[in-house]
Design a protein around this nucleic acid. Structure first.
Length: 752
DNA sequence: GACCTGCTGATTTTT
DNA sequence: TCAGCAGGTC
């Protein structure tokens, strides 16, 4: 009794302390602990703070931390959340909270319960790249010519369907066109083979979680009872499958607290349904709505710029962000000739900041596509300014690393045919396509894994002596190390295995720059494993492999390091920097070209720009280039329509102020100079040279500059296929009508 | 079966 | 521009 009283008193004190750090709205969000709660949290409104304080508050109230489930979008966010909770409550309590991404938390549960769904606990998790390989195998076998269907596009269609919870059966039933019917067949076979391989793709982690919860009352109540409180960050980016899983998981206690900002929904293309957040109050009619509208991050100018931009979107939850922060400086705009000049200008501005004592880690450069990072990297390297590129070609997606991952996977999941197929002849060991085919046929006939067929080489028909021996030898190596590694995982063992694989020697013998690079990457990878073993002495290879599959680059960035950050606008979500440069604000890039066709996509692109702007705390820069290298040639670019949507009094046009004189309507038009110059230039060209070749750069009166990728037909029927960056795709044009102008090559290549 | 070479298509964004 | 791959040659 006494004990209880003291505890209660402590709780009061502790929670009073927690609440004292919050504004009234935030306090309300933390204290409303019974029933569904929707927190609409604008950019920079202290969303993470509210989530972490809420969890700490719950723990102080006596809720067991292991009964709290916190789902985030990135592992980084989960880690940050955990470490912040650890500063508010006991460290060991904080560690017990189930915090992670949907994918990693569900994978964790699925490993425990795998037998209920017919998988083993060492199932492989396939990333997109693995899925595409598997699809390619299926397609190659089908003997159907793909025409425009690439394995990538099939993968994205299948993934889309799975995100919408459309099974292959449903997909097949509604397939109308031959294309769709073909995809339906691939889809069915793909699902079958995933099972056969004891593997799940990213989407399966969500779908199988739902299947698990529906598999029995017992399991359902086990998890529904366990999670007394569920919190979801970035709710605007959840998809249908995540939504369904949450609905079941929260059905018992109904303590579901979702936090999000519809204005920051940028993953529609991946199946995120903004509707989930817009309809939350419909799904839970008793839901409480709290708006966090005070921004603590940015200056008034930055906030107003963001606000004036996002006002152009129609679909929104009404809200108005405000701040007590100072007005701040205007946004500076850099107009550049091309992407190299853009990098130069930004880099020299960065140097100014550095010279006046700004920390490098306070500065970030954003862009739309990963490909845009290169000129910045070059320029920063020249200037000796340390930087990190976040995202892009992820370390774990490099060929040599994926090969090693496949080597490791097969050790713990002998059913993983896709991984085995990847490495069976890498390095070459005398098992080419023909032999592999025989092994695979045998495996299929006897319904055994590919690996086992290698072990039974003597029984497999049609094989040459060499192919039999090579198969057996490989099989024995795998079995040997699989046993050793399952006994105990050590770096020495891994190294020995990699030597035995022949992979290291292959690169050593090649001894090219590229090979040396790859060897270094492998070394780094082994170090990574060593680090893992050190931190997780009880963890198996299984845990390691899962972790690296579900982790993104951004999770591994050390933000305290003294480096400039370069990243895409997507990666920037959830981060903040005192100084932000947003580059490449051009039509075709931002909004990205495909967005032209669909107002929803345009709105998403606008939100993406909005996310970028609202990352900035003190000072924001915009830049665009008049010409940009794409696919090896220069194309002229126009400033983004979004620039004209931002109140112009917030932007400092600097030396380019005069450009605004060419304004024709009340809409701000900043483009013009390059276009006018170009128009003059082209009109002076002689119009005689009209024979076209593939690879020529041409100009079309409407689509602008493009590159010929194909030619067909004769005479009046002569047609060209032209890639136009402005539309982000190809157009089929009749030369007779298209009036294409040829652009002289020296105009396209003589830069830099 | 391994290796070489010339062609082609890719550039969104990522768990 | 460039990586990955199909197709041909040894």
């Amino acid at each position: 009794m006494t004990l209880k009283l003291i505890k209660k008193e402590d709780t009061k004190v502790l929670n009073a302390h927690i609440l004292s750090n919050l504004n009234p709205r935030q306090q309300e969000a933390v204290q409303y602990t019974a029933g569904p709660l929707l927190i609409v949290a604008g950019a920079g409104s202290g969303k993470t703070r509210v989530l972490t304080y809420r969890i700490a508050y719950l723990i102080n109230l006596g809720v067991k931390p292991e009964r709290i489930l916190a789902l985030t979008f990135t592992n980084k966010a989960a880690e940050e959340m955990k470490s912040r909770i650890a500063t508010l409550v006991d460290k060991y309590q904080a560690m017990k909270v189930w915090a992670g991404t949907f994918h990693s938390i569900f994978a964790r549960i699925l490993r425990i319960e795998s037998n209920h769904l017919g998988y083993t606990s060492s199932f492989s998790i396939y990333d997109t790249d693995d899925s595409i390989r598997l699809i390619k195998q299926i397609v190659d076998r089908s003997n159907i010519s793909l025409q425009k269907l690439t394995p990538q596009s099939i993968q994205s269609k299948i993934s889309w369907a799975k995100n919408q919870m459309i099974s292959w059966q449903k997909y097949a039933a509604s397939a109308q066109t031959p294309f769709d019917k073909f995809i339906a067949n691939v889809f069915a076979e793909y699902e079958k083979r995933l099972r056969l391989n004891n593997a799940m793709d990213f989407d399966d982690l969500l779908l199988n979680m739902i299947a698990l919860l529906k598999s029995s009352e017992e399991i359902k109540s086990k998890y529904c009872n366990r999670f007394e409180h569920i919190l979801i960050d970035e709710y605007q980016d959840t998809n249908r499958a995540q939504y369904e899983a949450l609905k079941i998981l929260s059905s018992k206690h109904r303590n579901i607290c979702v936090v999000g900002d519809d204005a920051q929904s940028i993953y529609r293309w991946r199946g995120a349904e903004i509707r989930n957040i817009l309809d939350f109050s419909k799904d839970y009619s008793d839901a409480k709505l709290i708006r966090l509208e005070q921004n603590y991050r940015s200056t008034k100018i930055i906030l107003e710029a963001a606000d004036s931009l996002i006002a152009y979107n129609k679909n929104q939850i009404p809200k108005k962000l405000w701040t007590e922060n100072s007005k701040g400086e205007k946004i500076e705009l850099f107009v550049c000739e091309d992407e190299s000049e853009e990098a130069e200008k930004i880099c020299s501005r960065i140097k100014q900041f550095v010279d006046t004592g700004t920390k490098l880690s306070d500065i970030a450069v954003f862009y739309r596509t990963n490909a845009q990072s290169l000129p910045f990297e070059n320029e920063l390297r020249k200037a000796n300014i340390p930087y990190v590129v976040i995202g892009g070609m992820s370390f774990y997606k490099r060929k040599e690393i994926k090969d090693i991952i496949a080597y490791l996977r097969i050790l713990i999941n002998p059913q993983d045919n896709t991984s085995l197929l990847r490495i069976i002849n890498e390095p070459p060991r005398g098992l080419g396509n023909v032999s592999i085919r025989h092994y695979l046929d045998y495996a299929e006939n006897y319904n055994i894994p590919f690996l086992e067929a290698l072990g039974n080489a003597d029984e497999v028909p049609n094989l040459t002596h060499n192919a039999k021996e090579a198969g057996k030898k490989f099989y024995e190596m795998i079995i040997k190390y699989s046993e050793l590694i399952n006994e105990s995982l050590s770096v020495d063992l891994i190294l020995e295995y990699l030597e035995a694989s022949g992979l290291l020697n292959m690169y050593r013998e090649l001894n090219t720059d590229d090979a040396i690079d790859r060897l270094e990457n492998i070394e780094q990878f082994v170090n990574d494993i060593a680090r893992f073993i050190e931190v997780n002495p009880d963890g198996g290879l299984n845990d390691y492999l899962q972790q690296i599959t579900l982790v993104s680059d951004i999770d591994n960035v050390d933000f305290s390091s003294g480096k400039i950050s370069l990243m895409t606008l997507h990666s920037a979500k959830g981060l903040e920097y005192p100084i932000v440069f947003i580059s490449g604000i051009e039509e075709g890039l931002l909004p990205f070209s495909r967005a032209n066709q669909n107002p929803d996509e345009e709105e998403e692109e606008r939100r993406l720009f909005y996310v970028g702007i609202t990352r900035a705390q003190k000072k924001l820069f915009f830049s665009y280039a008049k010409e940009r290298m794409r696919f090896g040639s220069y194309y002229s670019q126009n400033p983004s329509r979004f620039l004209s949507e931002i109140k112009k009094e917030l932007i400092d046009f600097g030396e380019f102020m005069n450009v605004t004189n060419v304004r024709k309507s009340n809409q701000l038009q900043i483009n013009s100079y390059s276009q006018l110059a170009d128009a003059d230039y082209y009109s002076q060209l002689p119009q005689t040279e009209m024979t076209f070749r593939v690879g020529d750069v041409v100009k079309h009166s409407y689509f602008g500059k493009g590159k010929i990728t194909g030619l067909a037909g004769e005479g009046d029927n002569r047609r060209a296929v032209v890639y136009f960056p402005s539309v982000g795709g190809k157009k089929h044009l009749m030369l007779k009508y298209a009036n294409l102008e040829k652009v002289p090559p020296e105009r396209n290549n003589n830069y830099g």
